[in-house]
């Protein structure tokens, strides 16, 4: 059991991590590098003056991208360990797991780890103003836990009490509210920040669906 769990999670996480590393380096890192030009003051923009969009070719730092790829793999292996554990637990409880249902497991993971947190705190670029780090991390961890628990209660609940509690737990972090900065004044143009937030959620959705499908695939393969 333990061997099957570990191997399937490792393979699934590594494969999804490679996909996410490629998408991150291609779509997200250029925006991070551009934002850093504003963060360090090499570029400036002014809210009220129409600035010409600077024609910037950011240069990739491949040592830095290597670390990004390494952590993409680490993070997705972490996601896959949690996912495979959840799938195995569901199976113990009589739920049938298929590669196709892996899509929905992946979407649930995406909702818990990225979409619900983003509803309170949008993915940020360097150089943006945000609330104090500990408060944000606390809200983030609480939101991930509450969303995961809420989804489980709604999906696997059997009566209105389960569904009602599940919905309440899903809503709770957003009723409490995410910590926000007291002042605005980020150095990054809002256009760039919005583009990053949208893209990072899209990359997350692709990565999580891949992680869900691959976790189910390797888990079923190891248990064949």
């Amino acid at each position: 059991m333990l061997k099957n769990l570990v191997y399937s999670a490792l393979f699934a996480g590594l494969a999804a991590g490679v996909i996410v590393a490629a998408l991150t380096i291609l779509l997200l890192v250029p925006l991070l590098l551009e934002a850093e030009l504003y963060e360090t003051g090499r570029l400036v923009h002014f809210g009220n003056v129409t600035a010409v969009t600077p024609d910037i070719e950011v240069e990739h730092d491949w040592a830095r991208n290597g670390m990004t790829a390494l952590f993409a793999a680490t993070i997705y292996i972490g996601f896959a360990f949690v996912m495979v554990a959840a799938m195995a637990f569901a199976q113990e409880k009589g739920v049938r797991v298929t590669t196709r249902s892996g899509i929905f497991w992946g979407l649930a993971g995406f909702a818990a780890f990225q979409l619900a947190p983003a509803a309170g705190m949008a993915p940020e670029l360097p150089g943006m103003i945000a609330a104090e780090i500990t408060a944000r991390q606390t809200w983030l961890v609480g939101t991930i836990a509450a969303t995961a628990a809420g989804i489980l209660a709604v999906v696997f609940g059997k009566n209105w009490i389960h569904w009602g509690v599940g919905l309440a737990v899903l809503a709770a972090p957003h009723i409490i509210g995410a910590p926000h900065p007291e002042v605005f004044g980020g150095t990054v143009p809002p256009e760039l920040a919005a583009e990053f937030a949208g893209r990072s959620l899209a990359v997350g959705a692709v990565g999580w669906i891949a992680a869900g499908v691959l976790s189910a695939y390797f888990w079923l393969l190891e248990n064949r």
Binding site: T24, F71, P123, I133
Partner: peptide, 15 residues
């Protein structure tokens, strides 16, 4: 420093 870009990419609070 090393996980920086991935932390931003997945929307985890960074600094």
């Amino acid at each position: 420093d090393t996980a920086h870009d991935m932390r931003h990419a997945i929307g985890f609070a960074c600094h």
